[in-house]
């Protein structure tokens, strides 16, 4: 964790999860992170139903052609300051689908990504770590104000 940050979260991080054509693997690991074994809700991290309430965007999947506009719209709807986490190999690099004719991703091409989580799918621990990193970014932005 970066130096000079407060020990506790200044605010509870609310996360919006957007699936841009992934295989479900990352998505169930994200929900697993919310459930009792990993239980991120004890840190105040929780999934919300609409991007307008969110601080962090978790995005999975390789972004198919039909999803591009929707991903952009979701990103624009999140109020500033915001952080974007790309979960899973296919969003980061295209992974096994890299040569497919119907992909526009990686997600970097479409919206700016702050934290990349690799793994197919990444373990829940890795996803929690990524959210903590995104929190560092948000706190740093706050400190600059």
């Amino acid at each position: 964790m970066a130096k000079g940050l407060s020990k506790s979260f200044k605010k509870a991080l609310w996360v919006y999860h957007c699936n841009s054509g992934s295989c479900n693997g990352c998505d169930i690991e994200i929900i697993a992170a919310l459930c009792p074994r990993y239980d991120v809700e004890r840190f105040g991290i929780k999934l919300v139903g609409t991007p307008r309430h969110a601080d962090v965007l978790l995005i999975t999947g390789p972004v198919t052609r039909q999803m591009v506009e929707k991903v952009k719209r979701v990103y624009e709807q999140i109020p500033d300051p915001k952080a974007v986490i790309c979960v899973g190999n296919c969003g980061n690099t295209g992974d096994v689908f890299f040569e497919s004719y119907n992909l526009v991703g990686p997600i970097d091409n479409i919206i700016p990504v702050d934290v990349h989580v690799i793994g197919c799918p990444p373990r829940p621990e890795a996803i929690i770590n990524a959210v903590a990193k995104a929190w560092v970014k948000l706190e740093t932005l706050e400190a600059k104000k």
């Binding site: 040569e99 497919s100 004719y101 119907n102 992909l103």
Partner: peptide, 13 residues
């Protein structure tokens, strides 16, 4: 038929 990753096509390569 909206999200389509062309898996069968990729499989042929």
């Amino acid at each position: 038929g909206h999200v389509h990753r062309a898996i069968e096509w990729t499989g042929m390569h």
